[in-house]
């Protein structure tokens, strides 16, 4: 019943992001080859694949974080709501406000918990006064399931939290700019199982509002949290489809080998 429900939802969601024929080069190294992927709105999409297959690189294309790497060159078309994000008129600053990102290692700023979350709204001018800002901070911390743990020490430094709490703080920080897409680059790789479970629960919850793209090493995690899965291998997208279909009935032999543990 639950599966059924999910599939219908997936089917009715419009495309949030369309990527066509994307190529990425690091210097002479051709890291991403001919990638076509459509990301649906209000859906969790998982990118899986062996290390070095390009899944993180492709993720970073989606909010142009690759711009910060001098040797990196991106070709092809990536559209968000029909707008080419590599258009010269696009300001990456605005793009990134719309497409938020959570990183592999928790990276809270060396500021208070409050200031960490308030950072995005402040720089983008999303709130008019302190009261509004307080409200945003509280609601984001609540959504990140962190409010109960930190409400009494909002002025403590973000770095004083535990690893799992730090990562949830980073998620709270990312959703505070009210993005439309949330990119997560192996968000649980530095966390213990309990913290991982909390973050996964949170991701499932976030789906109601955002389109979430998650890169993960763990196939179980992909199976648990995502509705759609793309399998990356050597820079190519080998297979992309419903998560249940990828895991139960892969079409490509390489996907099957990976899922059964023969490559990776």
């Amino acid at each position: 019943m639950k599966d059924m429900n999910m599939e219908t939802r997936v089917l009715i969601q419009p495309n949030k992001i369309e990527a066509r024929n994307v190529q990425v080069y690091y210097g002479d190294n051709h890291a991403i080859k001919d990638v076509d992927v459509d990301i649906l709105d209000k859906t969790v999409t998982a990118f899986i694949g062996p290390s070095g297959c390009g899944k993180s690189t492709f993720l970073r294309c989606l909010n142009r974080m690759n711009d910060t790497i001098a040797s990196c060159r991106v070709e092809g078309l990536i559209k968000i709501e029909g707008e080419d994000i590599n258009d010269p008129r696009v300001d990456p600053v605005q793009l990134r406000a719309k497409v938020g990102m959570v990183f592999q290692k928790p990276n809270p700023f060396p500021k208070s918990i409050y200031d960490n979350v308030a950072y995005g709204p402040k720089i983008h001018g999303l709130t008019k006064n302190k009261a509004e800002l307080d409200e945003v901070v509280e609601s984001c911390l609540r959504r990140a399931a962190l409010w109960g743990e930190v409400k009494d020490r909002l002025s403590a430094p973000g770095t004083s939290l535990s690893g799992g709490q730090q990562q949830r703080l980073c998620i709270a920080r990312a959703i505070a700019t009210s993005p439309e897409v949330l990119l997560m680059d192996e968000p649980c790789s530095a966390l213990d199982p309990i913290a991982t479970a909390q973050v996964e629960e949170l991701i499932d919850d976030l789906r109601s509002q955002f389109s979430v793209v998650i890169v993960t090493h763990s196939m179980q995690q992909a199976a648990r949290v995502s509705q759609r899965t793309a399998f990356f291998h050597l820079g190519y997208v080998v297979e992309y489809g419903e998560t249940s279909q990828i895991f139960t009935n892969p079409k490509d032999p390489r996907t099957e080998s990976y899922i059964t543990g023969r490559i990776g």
């Binding site: 968000i80 707008e83 258009d87 008129r89 696009v90 300001d91 600053v93 605005q94 720089i123 983008h124």
Partner: peptide
């Protein structure tokens, strides 16, 4: 939600 990526809002212009 309606804001387009292709045009800069005034605040972004100021920040830039």
């Amino acid at each position: 939600k309606a804001s387009s990526l292709l045009t800069q809002d005034p605040r972004t212009k100021k920040r830039n």
